[in-house]
Design a protein around this nucleic acid. Structure first.
Lengths: 358, 358
DNA sequence: TTGTAGGCGTTATCAA
DNA sequence: TTGATAACGCCTACAA
């Protein structure tokens, strides 16, 4: 029950209750109240109970700014990402928030919108908010990491994920892009494809470079020729997929397999190819990347590389807090999460009753 | 250029620079430095320049906790949502963050995961972080708003969006669900549908109740009979859509139109209906809600109600900051954003050359 | 135009 | 086991 006014009308202002208010109420010192609230073993059990009771009755809530100022610790984890509105990023943040919250931390989130200047500004603000750690997925053309120097200098845990720098002296979490791309391409080869296109974005993006590398290696290992004419670049949007389809339809000979660096673009392309009478997977087998929800909407359903953004977010916060609380001098490390090729109808040419298409 | 050590080796610790450091460096008082940094007109232009220069050289960054403690203002806006991982929520947050950032504010984000207890805990933490304002989309079964009392009492701007309370004494932003549902249903009627199902979630959710209301009103206005047998309830997931399709296929007579309360469920259902030989839109015309990316992947493309999450997020922060900075005593208000019916092939029966299907 | 001084709420140190 | 006190970094009367 919330106490009525006459219970403790020493103080009727609308200002938040502080430990001093509680102390006054109980004829204790603020120091003792503070200790009781933190469950300090030096406080007598009886006192502790009294304080907790009064705190709850008086609606006490800790002032985080004061605590943060005093302890130099904010209980806030900063997150800087290029954009928030992708399926993947939402999942990462969702997972990260859940774990952080469970451990008493909160997330401050900002978007660089792929602009280095914004990323720099965000890093500065995060620092002046005294975040206890920082999770970063880099903007497209971030040239160096000087804007994170403050964090290195003060040994504030800093972990990159997904869009990571190519510097192994820095902690990062990512998926095995190269291997995943290799698996995807190999799968197409095993389905009988001989002339496999790769549609991707600018390979300045580390992730796309890696996917390309895996694709190329698979071709080599299976003695298929690679040439630049097999590579198509765009921004990997759905509409770009529609456009790239037209380019493909004009090829002679047609490719018999396509490995897309994301699902979004793959589905756009598939719609147009189908309209033009191309049979998928018989004429052209297709594999995407990301396993977005669209993969099981498009017909035929799209084979794709599946990785769990939520798990990446959880892992990122987990290792960050572990480093923060248990191992401040932890050396830089690389975590590589495994992904999985989900085979669906878009690439499965030999169907058997025991192996039905999803 | 970053100054080398000998330039100002008064201070070589790795602790962050404070206004006192700057003051000492320049033989000024901390007060003057503070004022200069805030661009106070009372500071002489020359002094101001000196301070700014020194601040930048010494790598000064404001300590937000200290500022927040002193001014009782955090420059942080809290956001509480049920889940972060929907297309809609990501868009809202993305829009909100952009506008907030532009005005020097940051977002702390937390998920209630549809649990009242977590929502309460989140609200408490937000309050003790002294957020300057709060944006909330309610959990499914939040029974009352007592956990926001602190905010009302301290007149901290509190704005609900999407999942809003049914109390008009409270500020909120939402879309015109009822009207949108009416439009969608009416469209189906105009396409010749006589027996229109409505697939929705538990109508305890305000948004779904409104959509149902609009649907029902459209039937009434067009003298079509309504009965409970036309209503199907599920969790609106993709898989639930597949299941509901089986229920529908067993109906006799079949419906000739379906209005889904989201696209996710609609697409799941469409896949199964098509497999069973139902022609869309000839046998059954379909309209969804949300205009998710999947709407233009499914074949035929799905007619849907489109509304802009990014815009809702922008608007929410805009009005919140406006209230905070310009009009603290603003009365509760309701903003209703317009949505739009996008007509695609899934519901368009009469095709004409001048009006091609998207 | 600048300086002095006190306080925002908490915690850590030292003393009792 | 508890209390007094100072300090975290900043802002703002008030004084100069």
């Amino acid at each position: 029950m919330y106490p009525v006014a006459e219970d403790h009308n020493l103080k009727m202002s609308d200002k938040p209750t502080t430990i001093y208010d509680i102390a006054a109420q109980l004829n204790l010192s603020a120091a003792t109240v503070s200790r009781a609230l933190k469950n300090d073993p030096k406080v007598k059990g009886h006192t502790k109970k009294k304080v907790l009771k009064a705190a709850s009755e008086m609606g006490y809530q800790k002032n985080w700014s004061a605590q943060s100022l005093r302890t130099q610790k904010s209980n806030i984890i900063g997150v800087i990402v290029p954009r928030l509105n992708s399926h993947f990023m939402s999942a990462v943040i969702s997972g990260a928030e859940r774990i952080a919250n469970k451990q008493g931390y909160h997330l401050i989130i900002s978007q660089s919108e792929e602009l280095v200047e914004k990323e720099i500004a965000n890093a500065t603000t995060m620092f002046s908010h005294r975040v206890d750690g920082l999770l970063v997925s880099l903007a497209y053309n971030t040239p160096d990491l000087h804007h994170f120097d403050d964090f290195f200098r003060k040994k504030i845990p800093l972990i990159f994920f997904d869009r990571i720098p190519s510097n192994t002296a820095i902690s990062s979490i990512k998926i095995n892009n190269t291997e995943a791309a290799y698996t995807a391409t190999q799968h197409l080869i095993q389905e009988g494809c001989m002339r496999i296109l790769h549609v991707t974005a600018n390979t300045n993006y580390h992730v796309y470079l890696e996917r390309f590398t895996g694709y190329k290696k698979a071709l080599e290992d299976h003695h298929l020729p690679f040439s630049n004419s097999l590579l198509l670049f765009n921004d990997l949007s759905h509409d770009a997929g529609k456009i790239v389809a037209k380019t493909i339809l004009e090829m002679n000979p047609l490719p018999d397999g396509i490995f897309f660096a994301n699902d979004n673009c793959a589905t756009g392309c598939m719609l147009v190819l189908k309209q033009a009478g191309v049979r998928i997977p018989e004429d052209i087998a297709i594999v995407g990347f990301n396993n977005d929800p669209v993969a099981t909407i498009i017909e035929p359903h799209l084979s794709s590389i599946s990785y769990n953004g939520d798990a990446i977010g959880q892992m990122a916060v987990q290792v960050l807090l572990d480093q923060l609380e248990n191992d401040p001098n932890r050396k830089p490390f690389q975590v590589i999460l495994q992904s999985e090729l989900i085979i669906r109808a878009s690439s499965k040419r030999q169907m058997s009753p025991s192996n039905p298409v999803e």
